[in-house]
């Protein structure tokens, strides 16, 4: 059978079931507030959000691969484009621009102008240092780890902290060699 052509993010987003973004936004806000109350330290909240994102990413990659018909990316550049144009679109309905590549092609930035996580949000003075959207970086890290890429994902710019856009830096740490099935019959 000929390989199936990858589907565009728009086409997938149009075909999946969707919910109102405000439910999503407000629920996320409720989570962040719970974490702040429980953990008290901003750093701990960042860590927990990243962990939650990681858990989501690990599960979400399956759906992503199943619905997008995207097979292995030839290089990290393609990976970044796929995240920006297909991944973000299909789950959050947004796209990002990929820029700021380094010479080796292992570090780049995703620039987000739209971010459904932060509607209605204003960071109070007491939450300086909080990476409000840290769940998103966790998701990307978790998802990429499932396709054998160890990455570091960090927020460089954040509109909640007064920047003009959201900038997420993706850094490829290493490509983990594929491990062959532990036991075929399992």
């Amino acid at each position: 059978m000929a390989p199936v052509a990858p589907r565009s993010g728009d086409a997938i987003f149009a075909s999946v079931e969707r919910v109102n973004a405000e439910l999503f936004t407000l629920t996320y806000g409720a989570i962040v507030r719970q974490l702040i109350t429980d953990l008290e330290e901003v750093d701990e909240v960042n860590k927990q959000l990243d962990q939650m994102g990681y858990n989501i990413g690990v599960r979400l990659i399956d759906e992503f691969l199943a619905k997008s018909n995207i097979s292995r990316c030839v290089d990290f550049k393609e990976t970044a484009e796929v995240i920006a144009k297909v991944g973000l679109k299909m789950f959050l309905g947004i796209t990002a621009t990929v820029t700021n590549w380094d010479a080796e092609g292992t570090t780049c930035s995703l620039i987000l102008e739209d971010n459904p996580l932060v509607d209605f949000v204003e960071l109070p003075y007491t939450c300086q240092g909080l990476n409000y959207c840290n769940i998103l970086s966790g998701v990307i890290r978790g998802a990429l780890e499932m396709v054998s890429m160890k990455t570091e994902v960090t927020w460089i710019r954040d509109m909640l902290l007064g920047d003009d856009v959201f900038e997420l830096q993706l850094k490829l740490i290493k490509q983990v060699p594929e491990e062959y099935p532990y036991k075929d019959d399992e």
């Binding site: 079931e17 969707r18 919910v19 109102n20 959050l92 309905g93």
Partner: peptide, 20 residues
């Protein structure tokens, strides 16, 4: 308020809320 996200995005987020 007409923006949407995928149901999976919400379901996964909600599941993290419950698990946490």
């Amino acid at each position: 308020g007409k923006q949407e996200v995928s149901l999976s995005a919400f379901a996964l987020l909600f599941s993290e809320l419950v698990q946490y």
